Simulated scan of single mutants.
Amino acid sequence: MEMSAEFSVRTGGERPTVALVGDWTANNLGDAPARLAEAVTADGPVAVDIRKVRRLDTAGAYALVRALPQDFDLKAVQARPESARLLELVGAAVHVQPVAPARSGRFREFTIRLGKGVMNIGYEWVDTLAFLGHLLVVVARAFVYLFTNPKRIRWAAIFALAERAGLDAIPIVAITSFFIGAVVGLLGANMLSQFGAQVFAVELIGIAVLREFNIIITAVLLAGRSASSFAAELGSMKMNQEIDAMQVMGVDPFEALVLPRFVALLATIPLLTFVATLSGLFGGMVVVWLVLDLGPAFFLQRIVDNVGAVHFWVGMSKAPVMAAVIAGIGCRQGLEVGGDVESLGRRVTAAVVHAIFAIIMIDAAFALLFMKLNL
């Protein structure tokens, strides 16, 4: 049976003694702490006896410490050993003086942020290499399975992802490429007509679309469409501990989740690039026909004679690399998601930003390479 916290003051000795009784716990304190503080203040220096207290918790010990003078020696309290230890612990915590954090200068804060940024870049680089190594092992294993045990490959997942990530993107890729080709045609016709060389707008459209814009537009659209989708899907599975459950069951997440997405994009981006090429050329041809009055037959013949197939194959050669980068970045960011929604949002955003940045850098590297090869 619980008893309320009470106390009594005995004045028969050398100095008043405060004797606590009952349960000095959070649920039974009542107004006893306030009355105790008034009694101690009125009677001056006191002795404290808590040996008859039935139960004492941190709330009761805190109330007693706050009621006593700040210079009161808690070791002089008459108490059972366990009560004395609790009282000493609470008293030490109450009398700790807060330490104001030292103010650091702006330069020091800048160097700290710079150092953390460099360290984070190093960690990201190491994690990327680990992801790449694991992915290469899984791809090599799948290549072996292709000839030894094709049933081990998840064909259903590959075809489903190829349709969702690739074929379903054909309309948006075609429309965007059409307008890009039309814009290039308008700019070429407007600028070249000032020099009487408007007929060369055909070559400008052909080289720009076949060599650069077809793969760039396709890769950027898939970076925003597929990389974010892959990161969100794998991140949601990571949050729900589905990936951990797969590992417990002996299923490699790279083989079950990453490889199908990697193969799906690897197979569909060349097709989407070809669609973007046709659509971009068609948009440029329409503009040349309407603005410069050069017919489709003339446009196509000039493309075949003066542009050729080299620029087409230069653009198509970038497609597998872009596919690998987009799929790899999206899957890696998804697997790095933590246990909260904020982490999921950050990783999805990072997947899109990193993929677009990688696309631009890779395209610049290809441009330098083909310039050195004179292609």
Rank of each mutant, 00 (worst) to 15 (best):
G181D: 07
A319V: 07
I207M: 05
F282W: 10
P320L: 01
N190I: 08
L271F: 11
A182I: 01
A232M: 06
V220F: 06
Y145Q: 14
V251Q: 10
V263K: 05
L259T: 06
A39I: 00
M316W: 05
E336V: 10
E88S: 15
S4A: 15
I170G: 04
G206M: 01
G166R: 04
V310K: 09
A364G: 15
I356A: 00
D57Y: 00
V118I: 13
A365R: 01
V90H: 07
I207N: 03
A355C: 08
A201T: 15
L20R: 00
S279L: 03
F254W: 05
R35M: 12
L375Y: 12
V90P: 04
L265A: 09
M361Y: 10
E203H: 06
A61Y: 04
L135S: 09
E6W: 03
R106W: 15
W125N: 09
I175V: 13
T218A: 12
Q333K: 14
Q198H: 05
V307R: 02
R261K: 13
T349H: 01
A365E: 00
L68P: 09
E342Y: 11
M371Q: 14
G315K: 02
R51N: 09
E233L: 11
V337K: 02
A84P: 05
P296C: 01
V118N: 00
P296E: 03
A140T: 08
A227H: 07
V348Y: 03
S226V: 06
L146W: 14
M371P: 02
V48M: 14
L222R: 04
V341E: 14
D43F: 14
P150A: 11
L74I: 10
L129T: 11
D363T: 11
